[in-house]
């Protein structure tokens, strides 16, 4: 019974980590570089959830001050994740620019073919 309660207290983290692992799997298993970046952004969004979820208070409201409201959810994770979203899109943009250059230099964005071209004859 205790274990079941423990599970339902934390199942949102389980869902978050399933998302995170899916992103990790794409990054490791797939050779296509655009697919890898999509996986990376999947991983990033799951990190957002991991940060935001502890800030939620059940019965709280979004952290905008109002005299009628007593309980607010924690605004600090929201601030950190706002920064993370913007930094995340900057890294994705840089990665996509690199992919465009790799396509130009090698004619492909599949990792295995690039390694094949780089091997000495």
């Amino acid at each position: 019974m205790e274990g079941l309660k423990n599970f339902f207290d934390h199942y949102n983290y389980v869902a978050t980590i399933v998302l995170m692992v899916a992103g990790l799997y794409i990054v490791i298993a797939r050779g296509n570089m655009i697919k890898k970046l999509v996986g990376l952004s999947l991983f990033q969004t799951s990190v957002y959830l991991l940060y935001i979820a502890p800030g939620k208070i059940i019965g709280g409201t979004p952290p905008i001050l109002d005299p009628a409201i007593k309980v607010y959810s924690n605004p600090l994770p929201h601030v950190l994740i706002l920064t993370a979203i913007v930094v995340g899109i900057a890294t994705i943009a840089l990665g996509l620019a690199l992919v465009a250059r790799i396509q130009e230099a090698y004619g492909t964005i599949e990792e295995d073919e690039i390694f094949g071209q780089d091997e000495p004859e």
Partner: peptide, 14 residues
Amino acid sequence: YDAVDVAMTEAAVG
């Protein structure tokens, strides 16, 4: 999760 500002940014940026 009550993170309305983050949700707006995620919808616009993500």
